[in-house]
Amino acid sequence: MTIVFGVFLLTLMLVTAIAIVRTQNLFVAVMLSGIFSLLLASNFFLLDAADVALTEAAVGAGISTVLYLSALALSAQHEHAPYSSHRLIALAVVSFTTLAVIYATFDQPRVGDPAAPVHQHVAPWYLEMTRDAIDIPNVVTAVLGSFRGYDTLGEVFVVFTAGIGVLFLLDKPGARHSQTQTVGQVRLRHYLIPRLVGRMLIPFILLFGLYVQFHGEYGPGGGFQAGALVAASIILYALLEGETRALRALPRRLLTLLIASGALLYCGVGVAGILLGGNFLDYSVLADDPVKGQQLGIILIEAGVGITVTGVLLSIFHAFAARGRF
């Protein structure tokens, strides 16, 4: 039965995707991709990927919609010419790719077959070792934080790079700061209901974000999702009360510090592993009991992830917002 639900959702997704490409109104495209993200996330949930579903929702439907909108506010809302002249070549390339992919599906194992090679080799080991060596319920977090912690380190630095990049691109000194002050002030202050309800909820959203952060070991969640949620709550504040007030509460300097310190914290934990006689990112040496050490390490690096992600997302948002209009 579940798979029928999945198929239904997939079909909806396909329809949405095609509509996204076809529409010429960029705003509509952004809205539809929000829908697409939600559908995709539901699908992930059906496929047992709770953590991924949470991330996709926070990122795809939340943060990226906000980012797209703020970019859209700074640029045009309509496509002019729909397609390039190379349309046919494009179609040919794309069809070829698709045929290749479909061709590849013929020998693939059935979806969900427990005997497929994917589920044989490494996966059982992770499940088992999580119980023995790390002893936290969420296997995804264990793999993410410890077994493949180096990937996650890379991930943090990808986010970090994006943050640096957007700051570098958009934080040109002396670009339209005077205008920001007057425009940014008004925001949604006029709308009584959203403002009041929103403000009432902000602390709880924030708390929920932190909850997701610290319960990453027990349930779906972790540093990235938490960072996105915390950032979302501050973005909500900025939407309601204006850029300037949000920046007064969390000044840029602080955000920059957050970005760097999260990344440093993660790296620092890794280096501590070396200093204490283990390998890089070896958390077992952090405490007397290796299992405790692993848990401590995961908490610390998740905190690092959360801090960096919050800082980066907020910086990016402010960088777009400071361009004057959104």
């Binding site: 640096i164 920059t256 970005i259 760097a260 440093l264 790296c267 390998n279």
Partner: peptide, 17 residues
């Protein structure tokens, strides 16, 4: 091998600060 990556990586946030 690890330091080869970690040294520049760790310096990046510092350079930004």
């Amino acid at each position: 091998p690890a330091l080869q990556v970690v040294v520049p990586m760790l310096s990046a946030p510092l350079a930004m600060l």
